[in-house]
Structures are given as structure tokens and as C-alpha cells.
């Protein structure tokens, strides 16, 4: 009462959770209290035993037993409360997830409405038409010369070649020289190459021979 601010963001669920949690706090405090009593009863029993007062010691232990039973009951209740609280909190999360899904669903629906199946079909048909048209155009542009034209062209080319050959007879080629040339052909170069080959051949087996015994 009166503790609510101007902008209230506390839902009835929050209040329910608070109620449960307050209840839980009370139970927790109660368990603390019982624990204190338990310890005290144990001390009392020990004191009575020291004074050889068996009856009183037994009474204290009986009280302790009773408190222990209470403790177990309380702890069970605490468990239940906590479970309930957690279930509520989880249900709240689920609710939010559901709300999120519902909103997403709505968006998807409106988007789908904007592109009805008929429209899509029509659009696809139109696209196909356009593609076919485009193919036709490019075919026309690419093969503007028919095979008939092609044959005619071949003939023309051959005729042209014939006239070319006819007109310009083969010009006189220079005569082959008769004179003996100096012995350039037997140049030392290939020999050198052969020598280096031999050298390599001589060198290469050596490491192999050395390597053999090593194995």
C-alpha cells in the first residue's frame, strides 16, 4: 500500500512470486531457529548426563528428536515452495517465448500476404517469357549468317586465293652457296657438354659405393 511508484511495473505474477518468496524466507528463518533449539537440546542432554540425571537427558533427546522431525518437514515444504516459485518463473519465460513466436508468426503472415501464390506464379511466368524472348534475341544476333551464306563465303575465299597465286608467280629464290665453309659445324661446344657428362658419370657412382656399406 502506497509503496507503488508512479510507473508501476509490478505485475500480479510478481506479487504472487513475492508471496511465495516471503513464505520461503519465513521457512528459512524457521529452520534456523529449529537448528538453534536442536543444538541447545543436545547441550542440555549432555549437561544432564554429566550430572547423572538420565531422565532429564532422555527428555531433552526426545525433544531434540521431535525438532528434527519438524526440521525435515520444514525442509520438504521449503523444497515445494522453491519448486513452485521456479515453475512460475519458468512459465513466465515460456509465456514470453510464446509471445515472441506469435509476433514472428504475425510478421510472416503479413509478408506472405504481400506475395500471394497467384502473383508469384504470374511473376514466374512473365519471367520465363522474358527469358525466352531474350534467348531468341541473342540467337538471332549470334547466328545472323546461315550455312548457305557460309558456303558462298568459302567459295569466294578460294577464288581469291587462286587469283593471288596466279598473279604473283614464285619469285626467284637465292641460290644455295657452293663454297666450302670453315669447320664451324664441328664446334667444340657439344664436345664440352659430353665431357661434363662423363665427369658427372664418374663422380656420381662414388657416393653410391660409399653408401652401400653404410647400410
Amino acid at each position: 500500500m502506497g509503496a507503488n511508484g508512479s510507473k508501476n511495473r509490478i505485475t500480479p505474477q510478481d506479487r504472487a512470486i513475492l508471496d511465495l518468496k516471503v513464505q520461503r524466507d519465513r521457512l528459512k528463518q524457521y529452520t534456523k531457529r529449529i537448528n538453534v533449539v536442536l543444538n541447545r537440546e543436545t547441550e542440555i542432554a549432555q549437561e544432564h548426563l554429566r550430572r547423572n540425571n538420565k531422565q532429564q537427558a532422555l527428555l531433552a533427546l526426545r525433544k531434540k528428536k521431535y525438532q528434527e522431525q519438524l526440521l525435515v518437514k520444514t525442509e520438504n515444504q521449503l523444497m515445494n515452495l522453491e519448486q513452485l516459485t521456479q515453475t512460475i518463473e519458468f512459465a513466465l519465460v515460456e509465456k514470453e517465448v510464446f509471445a515472441g513466436l506469435a509476433q514472428g508468426n504475425q510478421v510472416l503472415k503479413t509478408l506472405n500476404q504481400e506475395m500471394s501464390l497467384e502473383n508469384v506464379e504470374k511473376l514466374m511466368e512473365e519471367t520465363a517469357d522474358a527469358i525466352a524472348y531474350q534467348e531468341e534475341v541473342s540467337e538471332m544476333l549470334g547466328t545472323k549468317l546461315s550455312s548457305h551464306d557460309e558456303a558462298e563465303l568459302e567459295n569466294e575465299l578460294r577464288a581469291l586465293q587462286a587469283t593471288e597465286i596466279g598473279e604473283s608467280a614464285i619469285p626467284e629464290l637465292p641460290s644455295v652457296p657452293q663454297k666450302n665453309f670453315p669447320n664451324i659445324i664441328e664446334s667444340p661446344q657439344p664436345e664440352q657438354g659430353a665431357v661434363s657428362d662423363i665427369e658427372e658419370a664418374e663422380i656420381s657412382p662414388k657416393p653410391a659405393r660409399v653408401a652401400m656399406p653404410a647400410e
Binding site: 506479487r15 513475492l18 516471503v22
Partner: peptide, 19 residues
């Protein structure tokens, strides 16, 4: 600062909660 709200249920003013 609007970062929290303290509230309690009618019968338990001294057992408040905070969100």
C-alpha cells in the same frame, strides 16, 4: 533512477520485495 521498484503485499509491509 527507474532501475528498481520496491513493493510489498498488503499484509506484509516489512517483508518487501524488489524487482
Amino acid at each position: 533512477k527507474g532501475k528498481a521498484q520496491v513493493f510489498h503485499n498488503d499484509e506484509a509491509a516489512n517483508e518487501a520485495g524488489v524487482k
